[in-house]
């Protein structure tokens, strides 16, 4: 395995704290917030994170595949979650301490509940509006009612963090700036 070459491309409007662990080829889009103590590992292939995502403390995002791992817009990765999905759509929530294996692809508006373990042996795609919840990682489909309000809340959440995090943390800048 060749040594991992670090290449960070961070949008000027993204907020990435100094105390994060980044490895490999990583692109972070505009308005995305990365809290301190988060970890993003592009081991095999690059990771591209879209706009307005929130990656909280202790969250781990890993790309074990050669292909680009694409994470869409306005996703929320809560504290201590671990995501290795090759693709993530928009407006998803990965709750606290949830773990998603690299065999799962997440579409949009999905919710992985707190502490859920999603490790199917076969490749699987979570359709839009899938909700995983409970200790047995049960699955159901959300009606989607209330998604506009949730999206609004997500935006406000990101806006607040964008304002507050730089006051208490040093920020990391990409090579370009």
């Amino acid at each position: 395995m060749p040594p991992i070459r670090d290449k960070f491309t961070i949008h000027s409007k993204a907020v990435v704290c100094q105390d994060v662990e980044l490895k490999g080829d990583i692109t972070i889009g505009s308005g995305t917030i990365v809290h301190p103590k988060a970890t993003i590992f592009a081991i095999a292939g690059p990771i591209v994170i879209g706009m307005g995502c929130i990656i909280e403390e202790g969250a781990i995002i890993v790309n074990r595949r050669k292909e680009v791992m694409r994470i869409g817009d306005d996703n929320l990765f809560e504290i201590g979650c671990r995501v290795e999905c090759p693709s993530v759509g928009n407006f998803n929530t990965i709750s606290t301490r949830a773990r998603v294996h690299h065999t799962v692809r997440i579409s949009s508006f999905c919710v992985i509940g707190a502490g859920c373990l999603l490790v199917p042996t076969e490749d699987e795609v979570l359709e839009d509006y899938t909700v995983i919840y409970g200790p047995a990682a049960e699955k159901r489909v959300w009606s989607g009612r209330g998604k506009v309000q949730e999206a609004d809340l997500r935006r406000k959440h990101a806006e607040y963090l964008k304002e507050m995090l730089p006051k208490f943390n040093r920020l990391r800048r990409g090579e370009g700036t």
């Binding site: 919840y133 049960e138 009606s143 009612r145």
Partner: peptide
């Protein structure tokens, strides 16, 4: 208005 479950996203409109 409707009742909404924050955990499994069931809602009473269903």
């Amino acid at each position: 208005f409707f009742l909404y479950c924050n955990h499994c996203r069931w809602d009473s409109a269903e």
